[in-house]
Simulated scan of single mutants.
Amino acid sequence: MAQPTIDVADLADVESLLDDDEKAVRQALREWLAASVQPRVADWFEAGRIDDPRGLARQLGELGVLGMHLEGYRCAGMTATQYGLACAELEACDSGVRSLVSVQGSLAMFSIWRFGSEEQKQQWLPAMAAGEKIGCFGLTEPDHGSDPSGMRTRARRSGDDWVLDGRKMWITNGSIADVAIVWAQTDDGVRGFAVPTDTPGFAAADIPHKLSLRASVTSELVLDGVRLPSSAMLPDARGLRGPLSALNEARFGILWGVTGAARAALTAAAEYAAERVQFGRPIAGFQLTQHKLADMATALATSTLLAHRLGRLKDEGRLRPDQVSLGKRHNVRAALEICRTARSVLGAYGISLEYPVIRHMNNLESVSTYEGTHEMHTLILGEAITGIPAFR
Rank of each mutant, 00 (worst) to 15 (best):
G67H: 13
A342M: 00
I283S: 13
D198S: 10
E62Y: 02
A2D: 10
R214P: 03
E365L: 15
K23M: 13
H69P: 00
W32G: 06
E354Q: 15
I50R: 03
M296E: 01
T259G: 02
R241P: 05
A269I: 10
K133Y: 04
Q123E: 09
A12S: 01
V222P: 07
K292R: 15
K210G: 14
D187K: 09
A108C: 13
T186F: 09
L381T: 10
Q104K: 03
K328G: 06
L313Q: 11
T5M: 08
A76S: 09
A86I: 08
L63N: 05
Q287C: 12
K210P: 11
A130E: 11
G239W: 06
G201V: 06
D236P: 02
D13G: 02
G72C: 07
V190W: 08
E119R: 05
Y83D: 03
T386M: 08
V258E: 00
D322S: 15
Y355P: 04
L364R: 05
F45I: 07
G105V: 09
S325M: 02
G280S: 01
S149C: 09
D322V: 13
R343W: 01
S368Y: 11
G242K: 12
V367S: 12
C87Y: 10
H69V: 15
I380L: 07
A215L: 02
R54M: 09
A92G: 03
L240P: 05
F115T: 13
W162F: 07
L300T: 06
I112E: 04
S368N: 12
D160I: 14
G201E: 04
V97K: 05
R276V: 15
R340A: 14
I388Q: 14
E220K: 12
I338L: 02
S352D: 08
E383W: 14
F193M: 00
T369I: 12
V195K: 01
D10I: 05
F202Q: 04
P389E: 09
N362M: 15
I385P: 08
R263S: 09
L85R: 13
A194Q: 12
G189T: 02
D224P: 03
M296H: 09
Y73N: 12
S366Y: 14
C93N: 07
L379I: 06
L18N: 04
A24E: 14
A177T: 07
Q123K: 08
R156A: 13
W256F: 04
A297S: 04
V103P: 07
S102E: 12
L228E: 03
R54G: 11
V14H: 14
A348N: 02
I283E: 08
T140W: 04
G84P: 07
T298K: 06
A177G: 11
D188G: 05
R98S: 09
L164G: 03
